[in-house]
């Protein structure tokens, strides 16, 4: 009985008795969730447009953060550094299209997947060679993001909103809205969805696969840059950042590999879920719940809804 009480009742009693703590947990979970969502979004964009599961997406996040900080350290002003990183990612997108995707047109998805693993190691090597591997701090203030935190007193205590977290959430939301409008309302967006569905048909109506691929990889690079800035602000900028890329996998399984809104909602489910679970149920299980919670949820989804919340259901006609 006691154990049932501890699982089913005590956590909710606690939520009720310390509402400020609960709201704080929701906010922290929400911010982490939007960032998970952004990482997953990078995967979804490329998967949608070329059917490639892009193993190198996490390393793109590292590359973005690392090159941004390195450019700044060379004495280049922060915002010019951002532009340089964008140029770098455009060149990278172009090179990936030229040297990898174009050579592998019509190949099996597994082969393309393997090629992105290769790309990951090339980027790791090149980035270490050029920028070095020393962890450093993200240049948040230099980029003009506000410092400090807002305190919102309520009930007996108060809830803290870090300014950088607020910035992250606001920018993530703006970016998601822009991307959603871009893909649903523009000619390029329509072309992208066409390429995702059928290469041959897309070519036959005059859509250039090469152009679409460059655009998609570039947009995924922009997403990586935003993720890199805000995730880099939460921890150091180092190669260890790519570990968070693995968090995108359960997010993708929950949201579906092909859905932009799925990536975001999946991210929020994981972010909020693991925070709440850690705080209220974590003590029962010992700590470290955050480490595995996402994967357990993903496992449940794989069993009962393998296409995810918003993914395309695969129906083979026999």
């Amino acid at each position: 009985m006691e154990i049932l009480y501890a699982i089913l009742i005590a956590p909710f009693v606690e939520m009720g008795s310390y509402p400020d703590l609960f709201i704080q947990a929701l906010w922290d979970g929400f911010v982490a969730g939007t960032l998970y969502g952004l990482i997953a979004l990078g995967f979804v964009l490329i998967f949608k447009a070329s059917g490639v599961f892009n193993f190198s997406q996490p390393i793109l996040v590292v590359l973005a953060a690392l090159s941004l900080v390195s450019f700044y350290k060379m004495g280049i002003p922060a915002w010019i550094s951002v532009i340089l990183v964008l140029i770098l990612f455009y060149v990278l997108a172009w090179l990936v299209e030229r040297l990898i995707l174009r050579q592998l047109v019509n190949q099996d998805g597994n082969i393309l997947f393997m090629s992105t693993i290769g790309l990951t190691f090339i980027i790791i090597g090149a980035a270490q060679w050029i920028f070095g591997g020393v962890p450093s701090a993200m240049i948040v203030n230099e980029l003009g993001f506000p410092n400090g935190s807002l305190e919102w007193p309520m009930f007996d205590g108060g809830v803290y909103f870090e300014m950088i977290d607020i910035s992250a959430a606001v920018i993530a939301v703006i970016m998601i809205v822009i991307l959603a409008v871009f893909f649903s309302k523009t000619k390029i967006g329509r072309g992208l969805r066409a390429v995702a569905d059928d290469h041959q048909a897309a070519l036959s109506v005059g859509i250039s696969l090469n152009q679409i691929w460059v655009i998609v990889w570039f947009v995924a690079g922009i997403v990586a840059l935003v993720t890199g800035i805000f995730w880099g602000a939460r921890s150091d900028v180092s190669f260890a950042l790519q570990i968070i890329g693995f968090k995108a996998l359960p997010v993708l399984i929950i949201g579906g590999f092909t859905s932009i809104q799925g990536a975001i909602i999946g991210g929020l489910i994981i972010g909020l879920g693991e925070k709440i679970f850690e705080i209220y149920w974590g003590p029962l299980l010992g700590s470290g719940v955050e480490g595995w919670f996402a994967y357990v949820i993903a496992l449940v989804f794989l069993l009962y809804r393998p296409q995810g919340l918003f993914g395309d259901k695969l129906i083979e006609r026999v």
Binding site: K187, R190, G191, R193, A194, A196, D197, D198, Q200, A201, A202, S204, V205, G206, I207, D312
Partner: peptide, 19 residues
């Protein structure tokens, strides 16, 4: 048949105007 299966009829036809 090579259609864009995720899109509706009108969206498919609109891709023909892409150029």
């Amino acid at each position: 048949i090579a259609l864009f299966k995720g899109m509706t009829t009108i969206e498919n036809v609109m891709t023909g105007r892409q150029l």
